[in-house]
Nucleic acid binder design. Structure first.
Lengths: 142, 142
DNA sequence: CTTGCTGCAAACAGTTTGCAGAACT
DNA sequence: AGTTCTGCAAACTGTTTGCAGCAAG
């Protein structure tokens, strides 16, 4: 939460962007949400307490959050783009070499997103996942 | 291939739909594709050899294929809906409910493909994999 | 003061839909 | 003959963009 505010603040500075009232408000509201929220839902939530923040700003700001690494775009099958918080405790997946047992960690947002889609299709609410790819590492292939 | 044509034919009969020239053509072209193809790409492909099949028909027909279980919608981040063939013999992964321990099998060619890409990026040769998504199933969510 | 940011409305892109005519059974 | 299906174009929906004014640095 504070962690993410700091992350975004750093990002803003690093990219030479500006800190604005709107971005602060949108970040607060976004961080107060759970699950994946659509842009429209977030926009309406913001509108409740803060007049005069437009759709465009919400769209633009969420893209910034994604770039800053505090939000992730989720695509479901309802034609709306949703965003979810990138949670700190997220773990990495693994490439495991069956020959020398070396392990390489990796992460891939697209796969995570597909996992969410699959879960949604089955009515599941994903809490965590485990993915391990087994094979031969570059040195053991030879 | 023939299998899928039969599946669709059965579906058409079962649902009291009609067999039409357009649906046959679209199915042929779709089955001749690999990977996930966008509706527009498919439409253009069809147009090459068959004049006068409209966008709307392609959209409507692909939805039918999905209902019939021979195609699957894929969402990437480019704003276009894509479809991939549901291939038999695909490896299944699992959705596991942490509350009632029920397990739902699923399969997703796109994830498999991404896994290969990731592996390639790290010089790995994938032999097998395991993916399990943990969460709450539709009945345990309530 | 300079430049980036915002809100608005218009523009866009992909998809869906209404309808009259064509095609299947 | 009775319906469903199709093609077209218009309508829709979610998202992006151009621009004039506003605000942060």
């Amino acid at each position: 939460m504070l962690e993410k505010k700091r992350m975004f603040a750093n990002f803003v500075v690093a990219q030479g962007l500006r800190s604005t009232r709107q971005r602060d408000i949108i970040l607060d509201v976004f961080l107060s949400t759970h699950q994946h929220i659509s842009v429209e839902e977030l926009y309406l939530k913001i509108k409740l307490s803060n007049q005069g923040i437009g759709h465009a700003t919400v769209y633009r700001t969420l893209k910034l959050f994604a770039e800053a690494g505090i939000a992730r775009e989720i695509l479901l099958h309802d034609g709306q783009t949703r965003y979810e918080q990138v949670s700190a405790g997220e773990h990495h997946d693994h490439l495991v070499c069956t020959s020398c047992n070396s392990i390489v960690e990796f992460e891939n947002a697209t796969i995570e997103q597909l996992q969410n889609e699959i879960a949604a299709r089955h009515g599941f609410l994903i809490i965590s996942h485990k993915m391990e790819l087994y094979g031969l590492c570059i040195s053991c292939r030879k």
